[in-house]
Amino acid sequence: MVIWDGLSQAFSLIITRDPAMMQIIWMSLLVSGVSVLLASAAGIPLGTWLGLAPAHRVRWLAQILYTLMGLPPVLVGLFVYLLLSSAGPFGVLNLLFSPTAMILAQTILALPIVTGLTMIAVRSKDREIRDTAVSLGASAWQVALTIIREARLAITGAVVTGLGRLMAEVGAVMMVGGNIEGKTRVMTSAIVLETRRGNFEMAIGLGIVLLALAFIINSVLYRIQGVGRH
């Protein structure tokens, strides 16, 4: 049966550390990892600011944010493609079909997710902590830091959610990366290609490797959360 063949394919891929697969795994980690880092660097402060602002004042911003959390990856891919295309405004940078283009698209995808979930995390902590901090004479900056610290579990969750979406995403990376072998091929686009080629066993094998990878990453992040809880 195809699924069992896929499972044994996954084992042989892992045991032999198939060099093509290792390259694909690194590219997935690199692109999605850097993207989620960039999105967090911008999204956590932004989400905190939105979360601390009075809800009625930023309501329309929040609504836009919630909408953008559902951005279809292919649409983002097409947008970034048109920007970076040599006929487009940033064509001279010659970035199309490169890992940089993929990072750009994935950062756009992850930014609303990290920002939105951070905003929710901050709001859920906001009231009593802010009142306490202010009563202790904290500055606005110190209030923000205190709340981020208090909401760290949910914020880590926001980052993990963003990373999960990016690792599983295929539309945008395929569009702006081009799925070039040895250069811009990632786990998900390799799965699409193998499926299209009729190599279902290999596609399922790669899928199992991707899931195993996600499990390892989540375990590591979970441990980090655990460390913070002591």
């Binding site: 590219m27 990892g33 850097v34």
Partner: peptide, 9 residues
């Protein structure tokens, strides 16, 4: 991860 990815390349 990033450094390792660079090595992979």
């Amino acid at each position: 991860l990033i450094v390792a990815a660079g090595c992979g390349q």
